[in-house]
């Protein structure tokens, strides 16, 4: 059993999302700030008339700095458009389910909760983003 993943980078780390969940990848979008929102909500994006919420994965994973270049990975989670702001986009890779493992305990809990698991590929370790968990974070009310 294999799975196809769209990969992207945040800092030195490589992440992946199931390819079918990705609607499109665009260059750095124009983001409208949402005052008072938590820092990982970068703001809102006009995606051809639809409104997408932009999530800064750097903020989400506790990076203090911003990357120079940014890309947007647009996914539809539970009917909501979400744009993940990442550093750069990689290839679509095909990975074998055999190479899958649960994320190790040593990863900081704040990051680990958004990671479904790790694929061991030849040249790197690929963390698979848990989109459902991410969507849950968005549907939680703040209070």
């Amino acid at each position: 059993m294999t799975e196809q993943l769209t990969t992207f980078r945040i800092g030195e780390d490589v992440f992946g999302i199931e390819v079918m969940k990705v609607q499109e990848v665009t260059g750095p979008p124009t983001i409208v700030d949402v005052p008072l929102a938590p820092s990982f909500v970068r703001g809102l994006i006009n995606l051809r008339g639809q409104i997408a919420t932009a999530l800064g994965l750097r903020e989400l994973f506790g990076f203090k700095t911003q990357a120079e270049a940014q890309m947007s990975v647009v996914c539809k989670i539970d009917g909501n458009l979400v744009s993940l702001i990442v550093d750069s986009i990689g290839d679509v890779v095909e990975v074998s389910r055999n190479a899958f493992e649960k994320p190790p305990e040593t990863i900081p809990a704040d990051v680990r909760k958004f990671i479904k698991g790790i694929y061991k590929t030849n040249d790197s370790l690929l963390s698979v983003l848990d989109l459902d968990r991410l969507s849950k974070e968005l549907s939680n009310s703040k209070e």
Binding site: V32, P38, L44, I51, N140
Partner: peptide, 22 residues
């Protein structure tokens, strides 16, 4: 807009304006 932003209480939604800005 999603629940997280709604729970900030101050926004009821979003819209796209004539010039394409949100």
């Amino acid at each position: 807009i999603n629940r997280l932003l709604k729970s900030l209480q101050v926004y009821s939604g979003a819209t796209v304006l004539g010039d394409g800005s949100v």
